[in-house]
């Protein structure tokens, strides 16, 4: 059943259109930077964008930082929100459940497909970023990259830390997917599930900027999203990323538990 769901997801043109659109913004940014030669100051604009003019290998990170606040979560919420509610809206959910596979297995299959989508999307953004970055900008093949702490990072260190960042961002997006999947079991409308997940994220981002909400800030799902920057400090600051992983794990376990409890006891009529 997992294979069926994966094939279904990755054979849909709209999956690939979503991924392509997601890559359009970083590519546009790269072209604009190349044409104008105007990079933001370090510490301003999306993380690492300031450094790409002199080192194109950092562009995968900049590309992820560009899509992370909005585009990436929208894409994930659209796909995950569609998982169950889309079948219900299309009237196919009851036929799926008519098979002896059971509801838990269907939910697991949907979950695996969503996780696969998150991983593929993040890796594609990073890969396209790498190709665009190394073709448009200079690549320091011998010289080391200056990290945030002012120390030099070898190309191997940059590659390793970029992989850590990709993993971290993937886990952060699983939190979004868990929200959307949970809402997807509550409603028959995939749009509603997607918008529900986005509402949570926008609310969280807004509360994070408020001093008055500082007591609940550590529990906000978007609180540690940008902490992947900490991988480029020297020594690496693990405090925030460790908390980010723990927080996403709690959200994923709780929401998937709720989704499972809801889906297995739900009256499926459509």
């Amino acid at each position: 059943m997992i294979g069926v769901e994966l094939r279904k997801l990755f054979r849909r043109p709209r999956t690939w259109i979503t991924i392509a659109l997601l890559n359009a913004l970083p590519v546009l940014v790269a072209v604009l930077l190349k044409v104008t030669d105007l990079a933001p100051r370090p510490g301003e604009g999306p993380a690492f964008l300031s450094a790409v003019l002199t080192n194109g290998t950092l562009f995968p990170l900049a590309a992820l930082a560009i899509v992370l606040p909005l585009f990436l979560p929208i894409a994930v919420a659209v796909v995950a929100g569609d998982a169950v509610a889309g079948e219900a809206q299309g009237g196919t959910l009851r036929y799926l459940l008519a098979r002896p596979a059971g509801r838990t297995r269907l939910l697991v299959a949907k979950l695996v497909a969503v996780i696969a989508f998150v991983l593929v999307t993040v890796v594609v953004v990073a890969a396209v970023g790498y190709v665009v970055g190394t073709t448009l900008f200079e690549v320091q093949s011998l010289g080391a990259t200056t990290g945030i702490s002012g120390t030099s990072l070898t190309p191997q260190q940059v590659a390793g830390r970029t992989l850590l960042s990709i993993g971290y961002i993937t886990v952060s997006m699983l939190g979004v997917a868990a929200f959307a999947l949970f809402f997807s079991t509550l409603t028959d409308s995939p749009q509603l599930a997607t918008l529900g997940a986005l509402a949570v994220l926008i609310g969280s981002s807004l509360l994070f900027t408020l001093d008055a909400a500082s007591d609940i800030a550590p529990y906000l799902p978007t609180r540690y999203w940008l902490s992947f920057v900490d991988f480029f400090r020297d020594p690496i600051l693990w405090r925030n990323t460790a908390r980010g992983l723990g927080l996403q794990a709690v959200y994923v376990v709780v929401l998937l538990g709720a989704a499972w409890a809801n889906f297995t006891t739900k009256d499926v009529t459509s």
């Binding site: 301003e44 945030i148 702490s149 002012g150 940008l226 920057v229 400090r233 600051l237």
Partner: peptide, 11 residues
Amino acid sequence: VDVVTATGETG
């Protein structure tokens, strides 16, 4: 001593 901000630092 590093002052750590979301996107940079001063050490």
